[in-house]
Amino acid sequence: MEKRWDTVGEVMTHAVIAVGRDTSFQEIAEILQRWRISAAPVLTGDGRVIGVVSEADLLTAQDQAPESAENLTAGQLMSVPAVTVHADSPTAEAARAMARGHLKRLPVIDEEDRLVGIVSRGDLLKVHLRTDEDLAQQVRFELLAALGPAYASAVDVHVEEGRITLTGSLPEAAPKALLERLVRAVPGVVDAEARLTAVSGDQEPVTS
């Protein structure tokens, strides 16, 4: 059976390079260079993520205070709050968070905010290298399961670069917001919008 890679936990990297809040400027720079990464999560003593420190944070500190930057610690340099994602979150949610924040990777946390992994753009390519037609087919299947054949056939699925637009009609009992969340949960979908006309239960769906 083909693996669907539905959740962040299925694609994330478990080994993570992280630093403590007291890690020095110089130590951070050496860690980023040694491991060839652009940023690292900042953790408390019990492993909770409290921020992220990046090459950009180091360069900004050097630019603003060149004489004192090297005396700063990760807790003073880090960007807060950290943009994180849970292991059981849909991969599409992680992709949207990266796109909104122009980020290359996200720390993955558990229900107590403890670090359990990291997910990168490269990890998400496992599911996001999908054609628009492939996405459309899976969205139609999900709509069929949620609405049934009669109403699913009345919904047109348009896809452009991973963005889904639903047009047509649907029963009043099927809120647009729920359908949008259903579609966004499909691996590879970047965003979804339902432009649908509601019809009462005694009306026949309008097919195109």
Rank of each mutant, 00 (worst) to 15 (best):
R48F: 01
Q64E: 15
T44D: 07
G75M: 01
R121F: 03
G51S: 04
D134H: 15
D88F: 08
V80M: 01
D123P: 03
E112L: 12
G45F: 07
D113S: 14
E111R: 15
A95Q: 09
V80K: 08
V108T: 11
P81I: 00
D63R: 15
A94P: 06
L72M: 15
V52H: 05
N71P: 00
A82S: 09
R96V: 13
A61L: 04
D132S: 12
L143Q: 10
V80D: 00
G101H: 15
G47K: 07
L106R: 11
A94N: 10
R114E: 07
A97Y: 09
Q138N: 05
Q76K: 11
T44E: 11
G75A: 02
L106C: 09
L115Q: 09
V52D: 06
I109W: 03
L58K: 01
D132F: 10
A61E: 14
G117A: 10
D88Y: 09
A61K: 05
G75W: 00
V119A: 04
S68G: 02
A56S: 15
S79K: 00
A69H: 11
D46S: 14
V139I: 11
V83K: 11
I118W: 09
R96G: 02
D132I: 13
Q62I: 12
V119C: 04
G45M: 13
V80Q: 05
Q138K: 09
G51D: 00
V116Q: 04
D123I: 10
L103M: 14
T131K: 12
V85N: 09
E112D: 14
V127Y: 08
H86P: 04
G101Q: 07
E111A: 13
H102I: 04
K104V: 06
D46C: 06
R130M: 07
V116W: 03
L43F: 12
H102L: 08
T60Q: 12
S79R: 00
E142Q: 15
A69I: 12
A99L: 13
H128Y: 01
I118C: 05
L129D: 06
A99C: 01
T60D: 10
A136N: 01
R114P: 12
I50K: 01
R130A: 13
A97N: 05
R100N: 12
N71Y: 13
L59N: 01
T73V: 06
A82T: 10
L115K: 08
G101E: 07
K126S: 03
T91D: 07
V108Q: 11
L58H: 01
R130L: 14
E142R: 10
A74V: 10
Q137C: 03
D134A: 15
A61M: 09
G51R: 00
E67T: 03
G51P: 03
E112P: 03
E93L: 14
V119Q: 04
V49I: 12
N71M: 08
S79N: 01
T91Q: 11
G117F: 06
T131D: 12
P90F: 05
P107T: 13
L59V: 14
V127I: 14
H86K: 02
G45C: 06
L103A: 04
I109N: 03
S89W: 05
R105V: 08
L129C: 02
D134E: 15
I118A: 05
L143K: 12
L58E: 00
D123G: 01
E111H: 14
L72C: 03
A136P: 01
Q76Y: 02
A92T: 15
I109K: 02
T73N: 07
L106V: 05
P81L: 00
R100H: 08
